[in-house]
Design a protein around this nucleic acid. Structure first.
Lengths: 134, 134
DNA sequence: CATCAGGAGGCTATTATGGCTTTAGATTCG
DNA sequence: CGAATCTAAAGCCATAATAGCCTCCTGATG
């Protein structure tokens, strides 16, 4: 998984939204966080599609948390915002024959799978609450 | 910290190098891993500068591990390859006055600092050995 | 001195980031 | 009810950063 600025902006937004008791619109969030509005708007849309946020249109519209902070993991935030995790290692261990012709990349795939698993588990266990609480 | 492909390629190379008992050159590594040679060469150079690898020029030259796998953390690999961690959050908690004019980004900085710390600690504890051993 | 492989820099392509405009749904007000 | 207004949704386009390609230089080997 490649961690991008989109993930950082998403987490920033969620931190602010977690302490709001009414919808916050993208304009307000972008000013509070000094994040470009147009870019942030797309990120918030992704979070809404993923079911982390709920969006409201019209006057006094904006975004609110749909899930509790304790139920929002860093992993799901990142995968929501960054789309599918880029398939860097195209050779799956379940495939009987390695699609890669010249490389023996299959032999090291298990190690990378293990690394990916460790990172995913860590980020999956890490919730918004872990960041918010002192 | 933003995780890029350079980090992934670096880890792939280290996995291969850990099982080699002689120097491997960038040509061989790039073919084995199906990674562009020119890009990989720069990554290996970075790892050499960081003291993780040692390079040998000339015939039968290449790269060898300079540190033991148990002493190579994922964090140092990433920071070596990606250069300085990009300062996403320019407002340091040690600064008495927040340089950001319109934003109250300073108030949420501690949360992000905490998140960054958790990720860094995790990656700092995770060594190459953790990935290699079954 | 001829060859091999790393070191270093510039150049191009791809992707991420950010800007801008239009469309769609919701609210308010006459 | 209909028009005006507000804000999300969605698309296209520009810029910035990353990823990847190529060439020349440097040091080591024999």
């Amino acid at each position: 998984m490649l961690i991008t600025r989109a993930s950082e902006y998403a987490i920033l937004s969620l931190i602010l939204l977690s302490s709001a008791n009414k919808p916050m619109d993208s304009e307000t969030l972008s000013k509070e966080l000094s994040i470009p509005k147009s870019f942030l708007a797309k990120i918030l849309q992704s979070l809404a599609k993923a079911g982390i946020l709920k969006s409201y249109k019209g006057v006094n519209g904006g975004f609110v948390l749909l899930k509790k902070p304790s139920e929002i993991s860093m992993l799901e935030v990142m995968t929501s915002v960054e789309g599918k995790a880029p398939a860097v290692f195209e050779c799956s261990p379940s495939e009987s024959n390695c699609p890669s012709e010249k490389a023996n990349i299959c032999s090291i795939w298990p190690f990378l799978h293990k690394l990916q698993g460790k990172i995913d588990f860590f980020l999956g266990e890490l919730t918004l609450t872990d960041i918010l609480e002192d």
